[in-house]
Design a protein around this nucleic acid. Structure first.
Lengths: 261, 261
DNA sequence: AGACTAAGTTTCAAATAGTGAAACCAGACG
DNA sequence: CGTCTGGTTTCACTATTTGAAACTTAGTCT
């Protein structure tokens, strides 16, 4: 990605390199990275060295390939436990999954994208990391729209600017205008639907998780297939979902306060 | 922690700050961080700003507290999937758990510490993130000793320097000398025991996961209680564990090769 | 109110750390 | 053997980082 307007300082560059390695998904050779990066050989080399030395990357000496380091896994543990709603929401997700018997998603907004932080898979037991951590588009998913709908005007603009508006299906909303109209409806209704906008046959009903102050903390959704549910029957679940979302919000907030004096 | 001998460059400092936030476990105020960090006010301030700007941290504007950011969760996903043995080892852990009916640990070495990357909990189903990602000491755990035993002399020294040698129980090995002697035995025997060295009543049998070249990739252990098992009966499982470890190693290695030409 | 204090933010010259073109080295290849 | 290709190191040049101190809020006390 060439996006990042301002890669502030060395730290920004280093993190950029980290992302680059992460994006590859498997061990990368120096020259592969060099080909993609905008940085000159020596710079990239030093950056990689620093990151490796710091344990954020590991260098396989045999193949000369870089991969993400274990230090990240450690940080991950902390990040997931503290920054996201996931640990708090866990029992509530279980409850919602039990009640509905459908797939549950818990997501947060990250740079205009939907980041799934937890999931319940109707049939199968938890599969945490393998599924959580994934990112998806905001403009054409239930959780995405639910979060966008309650964003402040400025935040919304920033987020909209990052949407691709790629037409995944016939129902995908492909312009900011269409989307804004839909967001207004969502706000009025209190919950968002995914009308097969991302994948044909997949529908969902999503509600935002809002702080008392009205800040968007995340979103919660129940997903199903057109074979098993209609939008109406999913909509009937909305009160239940909203209730769970409210309880998650309440707990998340009470959790932030008890700082040590 | 004031450990890190050489916090190379700005990147090192930034990551150090990240760790600091992670260590706290909950949103931290600027001044709290300032109290702990060795860095002067302005420096710390700028580092925090950069990290926040980069999405590695999030600043709660209401409370003025910093927490780990979502970008980290995203990286985490990639890190866990690519850098750790966990995704590869998963089915094998299931197999081992089924065979033994005991608690299984999969760990890797991170800066001289044991990092648990996956776990099977005899009774309960997977609890990924809640458990994986934790760190523990190397000198007094089965997996730790199993990994140390196959380290190169230099790497071993580096790792030893990072051990606290705190006496957790009467059986804890509390000096590098004792530990080195033990490591030699472990190497000869092919597997390590935890003889209640970390917690009374908890024993385990661990084997290293080695690459073909002999590099330590991780370790695998079966843990039990003195109530259910003796060291001998655990030792009887060693061949099974070693077999699984070998299969994990084999798959991990074959996985590294298929680079795109 | 007005003076104090604590917490966070900004400044600015000095110093440090980062840059990158080019030279270098090592092993693979023909 | 020369010649590559991929990786590592040098070194003079520069941009970034540094941190003491000054400043700005937002509370608190009298």
């Amino acid at each position: 990605m060439v996006a990042d307007g301002h890669a502030d300082g060395t730290v920004g560059k280093a993190l950029d390199v980290l992302d680059m390695v992460a994006r590859h998904g498997r061990p990368v050779r120096f020259s592969d990275l060099l080909a993609q990066s905008a940085y000159p050989k020596a710079t990239l080399y030093r950056l990689l060295q620093t990151l490796t030395h710091q344990g954020m990357l590991t260098l396989d000496p045999d193949q000369g390939t870089y991969a993400l380091g274990v230090r990240l896994v450690r940080l991950a543990h902390a990040a997931w436990a503290q920054s996201s709603l996931a640990p708090i929401a866990r029992p509530y997700l279980d409850e919602l999954a039990a009640k509905t018997g459908e797939t549950i998603h818990l997501a947060q907004l990250d740079q205009g994208q939907v980041l799934y932080v937890d999931k319940r898979n109707a049939a199968k037991p938890v599969e945490m990391f393998a599924q959580a951590g994934k990112v998806g588009p905001a403009y054409c998913t239930g959780v995405g729209k639910a979060m966008l709908a309650w964003l402040s005007p400025e935040a919304l603009e920033a987020a909209l600017a990052r949407q691709s508006f790629y037409r995944h299906t016939a129902n995908t909303l492909v312009s900011p205008e269409q989307l804004k109209a839909e967001l207004q409806e969502i706000r009025a209704r209190g919950h968002a639907f995914d009308r097969e906008e991302h994948e044909v046959g997949i529908i969902c009903c999503a509600v935002p998780i809002l702080s008392r102050a009205g800040r968007v903390m995340g979103a919660l959704s129940v997903t199903s297939t057109t074979a098993r549910h209609s939008l109406e029957s999913l909509g009937a679940l909305a009160p239940t979902i909203r209730d769970i979302a409210a309880r998650i919000a309440a707990e998340a907030e009470s959790w932030r306060f008890p700082e040590q004096a």
